[in-house]
Design a binder for these strands. Structure first.
Length: 466
RNA sequence: GGUCCCAUCGUCUAGUGGUUAGGACACCGGCCUUUCACGUCGGUAACAGGGGUUCAAGUCCCCUUGGGAUCACCA
């Protein structure tokens, strides 16, 4: 069997949408799994709405997710001559005809039909017209679709789907201005690129019978189709901006990791037993289009967040340090000169659900001029505190090796000597070091700060209490 | 409205005729603990409804209901 060829064919009229990203992911996965090719094609036949900026945004999104392509990006706008040629072929073979109806006329007929409860399909006025000499009258080219019989296919995710040809009308393949239309272009491209499997959103199932008919008219092999369900918002309506972010890149900006996004997206509609965590490598091995569900799924940020937290928790601190840096500079913090960022990240990994939270959590390490949490100060800073902190400071400074165990030893010693509990000193230290009542572990913070900075902060607190 | 598709906890899902209907997120409790988290243990929670078929139906068929998609010289 020859190798599979799949494609992702976004139209460059906006950002890479999470739904599009999932479609791209499924295509990519299948191509990789079956050692086939993954092709990127930009569907920009609508010249007015397509922008290079959108193309860049889409490529950026795919690259961020780790989806690379073997061929392309191809631009449909480069293929206009090819489409023209195919239109001529259809015309010559009597499989298409020129239609002189104006769009105003058609619009009126449609409304009329709709009003009378009929079908708003083309009435076939020009269908049987004899070939007309080109006298300058504007025309579109319509595909002469069969009016009897049924068209069906076995969808890789939905099973057998059939349509009565009588329900279909003669779609326009070439506009008045000579440019080709979507349904036609997709077929010509998929055929000429020898695409074997088309995975796309199920908003395309209604286009599929027309496209199959077109393949047949063009005498091309019909690829297999897999229509994956839509992604819905919490109210079960098609996911849109009003449900929150829909752009993949927006998720990066909100501090999500690409592996979390990929993992979330793939599990939305696909499953592998009880497993939840999948890397791209796992997926190449485990993914199969047969296990994609047939029903639409609701995009659930909570679960994405959980996955993101998982990947942050288990991520490489060096990489995370690199990723958090831009978020820190947005907050006016540059780690140079402060505690080692990698060490800082390690203390925050299990406490952050997003890189944004990680950045916020790291701020106090690099800012020594914070105000102490009011309630915390009222509760944990008291008359005894300065002496205790001073005692602690002295013992810490006397320490030889400044590691976790040694630091913990100091606290133990103080508690024993003073006959107090850890709870009588720890919260004050936490407040002194971080300004907050919620922070990483005290010993960890002290180790990360080192003697000098720990000393500075302890002194500052002592002074503040007095 | 026509056509097409879909239907298991709130959400993502497992389930392919015989299960105490399983897992995950979220939620609620216990434990762990220097805080917050992490972790861990446990709990609440679902087969949309009605007819069939069958010894047996979440699983097969039909209808109803509900949801979604699409009906452009957009893609």
């Amino acid at each position: 069997m020859s190798q599979v060829r799949l494609r992702f064919a976004p139209s460059p009229t906006g950002y890479l949408h999470v739904g599009g990203a999932r479609t791209a992911l499924f295509n990519w996965l299948l191509a990789r799994k079956q050692h086939g090719k993954f092709i990127l094609r930009i569907e920009d036949t609508d010249v007015a709405r397509s922008t290079q900026q959108s193309v860049d945004a889409i490529l950026e999104g795919m690259t961020w997710l780790g989806l690379d392509w073997d061929e392309g990006p191809f631009y449909q706008s480069d293929n206009f001559p090819l489409y023209k040629e195919y239109v001529q072929k259809l015309l010559a073979a009597g499989k298409a005809y020129k239609c002189y109806c104006s769009s105003e006329e058609l619009e009126a007929k449609r409304e009329q039909a709709l009003k009378e409860g009929g079908k708003p399909k083309y009435d076939g006025t020009c269908r049987e017209l004899a070939a007309q000499p080109d006298d300058g009258r504007p025309y579109v080219v319509r595909f002469k679709a069969p009016q009897q019989g049924t068209t069906s296919w076995v969808d890789l995710v939905k099973g057998k789907i059939s349509f009565e040809n009588a329900e279909l009308d003669d779609l326009i393949v070439q506009r008045t201005d000579g440019t080709p239309t979507y349904n036609f272009v997709v077929v010509v491209d998929d055929a000429s690129m020898a695409i074997t499997t088309v995975i796309r959103g199920d908003d395309h199932v209604n286009n599929t019978p027309r496209q199959i008919l077109l393949y047949q008219a063009l005498e091309s092999e019909v690829p297999s189709f897999a229509h994956v369900p839509m992604i819905l918002g919490a109210d079960k309506a098609r996911l849109s901006k009003r449900h929150g972010a829909t752009s993949v890149i927006a998720y990066r900006e909100m501090g999500f990791l690409p592996e979390a996004m990929v993992n979330y997206l793939v599990r939305l509609g696909w499953s592998y037993g009880d497993e939840e965590i999948f890397s791209l490598e796992d997926l190449i091995q485990k993914f199969s289009i047969e296990n994609v569900g047939r029903s639409a799924g609701v995009f659930n940020t909570e679960k994405l967040l959980w996955l993101n937290a998982h990947y942050i928790k288990n991520g490489d601190p060096v990489r995370l340090a690199g990723l958090v840096t831009p978020f820190l500079s947005e907050r006016g913090v540059k780690p140079e000169g402060g505690p080692d960022l990698v060490a800082v990240v390690k203390t925050l990994q299990e406490r952050a659900k997003t890189m944004l939270e990680l950045a916020d959590g790291a701020l106090f390490y690099y800012r020594g001029d914070f105000a102490y949490d009011e309630k915390g100060a009222a509760k944990f800073f008291n008359a005894e505190t300065p002496a205790l902190l001073a005692e602690l400071l002295g013992k810490l400074e006397a320490l030889g090796s400044f590691d976790l165990a040694a630091i913990e030893g100091v606290f133990k010693a103080i508690c024993e000597e003073k006959g107090i509990k850890l709870g009588q000193i720890a919260p004050a230290v936490r407040l002194a070091l971080s300004g907050s009542t919620a922070s990483p572990g005290i010993y960890e913070m002290i180790e990360v700060f080192g003697k000098a900075e720990t000393g500075k902060r302890l002194e500052r607190a002592i002074a503040a209490i007095k």
